[in-house]
Amino acid sequence: MSRSIVIARRELSSYFYSPIAYVAMALFLLVAGFLFWRDFQPGKPVAMRTIFDWMVWLLVFIVPVLCMGLLAQEWATGTIETLMTAPVGETEVVLGKFLGSLGFFVVLLIPTLVYVGMLALYGRPDYGPIFSGYLGVVLVGGLFIAIGLFCSSWTKSQVVAAVAAAAILFTLTIAPWWAGQQTALPTFWRNVVDQGVFTRYTDFSKGVLDLGNILFFLVATGVFLFVTIKVLESRRWK
């Protein structure tokens, strides 16, 4: 585990050398800021729900870019060989990369606390939905990062990794949400669509902490991390 932390720290600090990370950060804050400015009006309910909902949409496009280099770049430059010939295991590497990106994602969220502060200053926000909203965003972010990491594990090309990750995230998040808008949906498909990330996520932003939802995100994240570990190990079977 301590080696995962070492890898996570390196990954986190390497984000600050890349312009992509700053672009992502700026985009994230701008959109959140715009939504806040639009919603934060006298007479409107004091909440951050729209901000949280929009964050998830934004993450579908930002996370693939943030994660595309995690392993693809190691394959492309050959650093994977230096890394794996140090006494570290595949699990430690994958966990380290995951935690590093999750760390960066949390850093991305911190400035949005300013909006919470402003709500607190000018109104009486209900902290429950804010807390559950943040928890939900972190869980969604974790799942998305695990998917981005997985996509980065089997290719040398960062572009391929990003496109693949965006496609998967779109299929899991936006497509089911869109389908859910259609009224005449057979029950079977309705049930499928309700498994979508966005549907599950909206519970959090409403302030509903549902154990099933929390488990859904944790298990899905675990599955993608596990598959990524197997992909890293698979170099041994070739």
Binding site: S18, T79, E81, T82, T85
Partner: peptide
């Protein structure tokens, strides 16, 4: 084995941003 080995791979891959 890896903890008692020092290895310089071909083409010396390094993290260039560090």
């Amino acid at each position: 084995v890896r903890s008692i080995l020092g290895y310089l791979p071909e083409n010396v891959p390094l993290y260039t941003e560090m």
